[in-house]
Write a protein that binds this DNA or RNA. Sequence first.
DNA 1: CACCATGTTCCTTG
DNA 2: CCAAGGAACATGGT
Length: 284
Amino acid sequence: MPELPEVEVLVQHLEPLLCGKTVRAVRVFRSRVLRSESKEAFERGLSGGRFVAVRRRGKYLVFDLSRSGSKPPMKVLGHLGMTGRLFLAPRDGPLPKHTAVVFDLGKDRLIFEDTRYFGRWTLDTGVLNHLGPEPLEPDFSTGAFVEALRRSRQPIKVRLLDQTVVAGIGNIYASEALFRAGIAPKLPACRLKLQQIARLRRSIRLVLRDAIRRGSTIPLNFSGAGKPDGLFYFGRAPGISATYEERLRVYDRANLPCPECGTMIKRIVQAARSTFFCPNCQRK
DNA sequence: CACCATGTTCCTTG
DNA sequence: CCAAGGAACATGGT
């Protein structure tokens, strides 16, 4: 369930639930999801820490923990990959089939479940240094965006997926932002005019903010393992079908009419990923 | 069986 | 070192 908006909504939800709680123990069931540490080092390193902040950077979850005595504070990073889910559940409840990590918090436990195991956890925050600006923060300026695009001949859609350009855009919102900006996904990044870059920047911010606003109104489901919780784009959970159409205007809508002009939406493949666009509204 | 899926990293080639 | 392209990772849905 990744991409910036879903991670942001998750962070807003978890922050009040986790802050103040202490990690009694950690159990790693699939050490594949650990990026740098061994299973033992990760489990031991986190135990005893108390959550003091839950934040987001790009698609990463950032947890700040304080520790007893003179031990320095620490951070844990989580990335949900393609299918990762993170939720609180009662300690005595069942574990989902693809449980990868469990954080024991006493009465509750925080469960990381990930069918494809593409998600990653680490105590090393170094990866954050390679991320581009936060799209919703002021440092994602038009000037910075121009600079990130001017020396690349990659198609703009592919460029938007590069997390060093701007952090948090994924395959869905890349198509959505380009549609809103009226820019063809195949246009080489260096060929965008200043006006187009400025417009694309606004579209990115609009599309992401909109998704966060929508996601924030959907109640998250922490009760059942593996059930849709409204943050999934697919597996249309009951009750979100009405908002689905408004939310995504071109993504996964090949051969359906463009909501602006009625032209059939096309699907193409770029960098081995699907791109959806309106060939009429996005001609340059 | 075939193809598709919200992401990143590693390897190769130029 | 950089840019770009493709495979790999792993599991499930259609």
